[in-house]
Design a protein around this nucleic acid. Sequence first.
DNA 1: ACTTCTTTGTCCACTCAGTGGAGAAAGTTC
DNA 2: GAACTTTCTCCACTGAGTGGACAAAGAAGT
Lengths: 396, 396
Amino acid sequence: MRRMTARPANAHQARLLQLLRDGGPNSRAQLGDQVDLSRSKLAVEVDRLLETELVVADGLAASRGGRRSHNIRLNPELRFLGVDIGATSVDVAVTNAELEILGHINQPMDVREGPVAVFEQVLAMAAKLRASGLAEGFDGAGIGVPGPVRFPEGVPVAPPIMPGWDGFPVREALSQELGCPVMVDNDVNLMALGEQHAGVARTVHDFLVVKIGTGIGCGIVVGGEVYRGTTGSAGDIGHIQAVPEGRPCACGNRGCLEAHFSGAALARDATEAAQQGLSAELASRLEANGGLSAADVAAAAAAGDATALDLIREGGRSTGQVIAGLVSFFNPGLVVIGGGVTGLGHNLLAAIRTQVYRQSLPLATGNLPIVLGELGPTAGVIGAARLISDHLFSPA
Amino acid sequence: MRRMTARPANAHQARLLQLLRDGGPNSRAQLGDQVDLSRSKLAVEVDRLLETELVVADGLAASRGGRRSHNIRLNPELRFLGVDIGATSVDVAVTNAELEILGHINQPMDVREGPVAVFEQVLAMAAKLRASGLAEGFDGAGIGVPGPVRFPEGVPVAPPIMPGWDGFPVREALSQELGCPVMVDNDVNLMALGEQHAGVARTVHDFLVVKIGTGIGCGIVVGGEVYRGTTGSAGDIGHIQAVPEGRPCACGNRGCLEAHFSGAALARDATEAAQQGLSAELASRLEANGGLSAADVAAAAAAGDATALDLIREGGRSTGQVIAGLVSFFNPGLVVIGGGVTGLGHNLLAAIRTQVYRQSLPLATGNLPIVLGELGPTAGVIGAARLISDHLFSPA
DNA sequence: ACTTCTTTGTCCACTCAGTGGAGAAAGTTC
DNA sequence: GAACTTTCTCCACTGAGTGGACAAAGAAGT
């Protein structure tokens, strides 16, 4: 199939594409109910979209007591590529235009090997998905990287955990390789977009997503739009002080949140505890695996290990301490906790909630849900697909 | 003069009004350069605005090498009332449609006396300004109150320092009394609007305004728009923990920023220091005035008193500690420090800067100015006028 | 004084987006 | 088969907006 290159010609068409993406197939009449346009005008715009082949009319819907309607839907052959680059692994997924995941691969990886090596791997993964018959090509791709991004240009800036990525023209390079439009964003922002599109944040306009993985970051959504800050580093909460005069951090300060809690910090603390003989459970796992991860701590806690539980609680307390401040400041309608360590589940959530509800003002917390993300590891790739579709489904 | 009741009929007219407000008188040709409309269409809209008497054409400008242009300006008889209610004083000002202050009164007051008493005083002040010939009536009024506000309804909610104000229909009551449209907002948000309109934040889109007065609060501007949060309490940073296990706070927690630094806290700490004999300078002022205020500490510091300077530095450190976290999170393009204690001036600013630059990430602080507000006590009333003018100069 | 050039403002015919109503098409229900 | 619904199409009409021609008013050069 030849790839789509058309873009909506005006705001009406963009709106219609987004309705079809988010609400699935629809009749002209149903669309008319949602867009505040006369049926005549709507029919004209739909016809134009049909001409571009961005949408197709296939078959008739069941009658609802009168003439049967045509099913208008986004072209089912459209394909988006979603890429979520983490610190230690990559997710690559293929979606249709309705952002449903058709295929998904996760592979271990190390960002520190630099952009060239990583993109070689990503392209191989994309080729694998294509070869399995899910796509003949891509109409667009979204990429998330674990660090700040100069969004308009699609270029990472000064990424602390990604040496070699600073200034690398991710957007341009990938666009060339894939032969389609590409958008780049911070991984946490994409997680926020994902949870907004298909997860717990579907109905909220102002919310925060705290992603606790190898590091820790926060996605900020204001009025339904991701807020990226002046230099693209908004949400970089890993180095907010959580414990005064606390642990030294790689950034040079002490007591940073990330030094006290994150996938990496938890693994480190658990290993220390095991070595000091504080927990037989953890020690046996350390012996068995030759190392400890956040998943091990989760398993140990689930098995009733008090030390593991303490580590989780203490981490939740530090995280909650920082989140409490953000809640007072930002007054969100929802806080979503996600990322790799969500395996720690409700023990972590309970600790965070306790701290936030204790420290923030009643007016800000009174009606504030703090919940785990719904989408797990797919949040990032769904968000990535959403990012590029938002771009392509807006007027050229 | 009869009061204006017209509103712009469409977005073009609204845009024109705002251009005339922010840029002063202009010819049709100059306006045309700024609005991306054909000269014909522009002329039509300007003529319609002239019909409503919202704008007037008076006189001809000097020639610039060809036919002289007509001066189009906002009706010079339009009057806005700006009211800024603080914890311990009120500011009331009259502006023209270009938001220039024509008259300004400040009086001491106590919010705790409740809305009825306060508004009696405010209305008397407004009457005084009117009687002095500055206005025959008001075309709109903006009001700031020192606590969270449910913005769409113009009603304070759960204001901790304003017992008796909870749910009081400020907007409706004042609109009735003044006979004009009224908008209500948090005082800190209005200060942000003021600095955005006529102060240091004219060219920045994302910035924070930290107001340190009796209490401490923060105004948040995202993409040029004030962000108010889900329940209107965004920016309520006074109870973020600045010092773990620090001073007990009225809110029930310990170490809140407001318990460690604010006009009230500074006065309290200075009094303690004077009573403990730590500073002869402060002690003599305490004796002379029967009490100490932030202004006394400022004066003592200016006179070289080490204790006063220490108090300021320590307060700046606490404030900087909290701001550092906000900067990491929000990545603003500017931080403005304002409010009553700006009399502490550069001693305070230096302490805040040191702490922020030390604690926040380079990418967020690299190009981040931290400055004192430009407008001083007029920021609030200018912001109030701006608030109502934004409302009136937008399509009905 | 006269021509030429520039700037500002007005007028008018034309285009195109969008509306609303009439009515055709294709069903269901009694 | 008649009456009613729902969906979709067609078409005349309105009104926003454009762009070009031209008039008005002044500056600068000859």
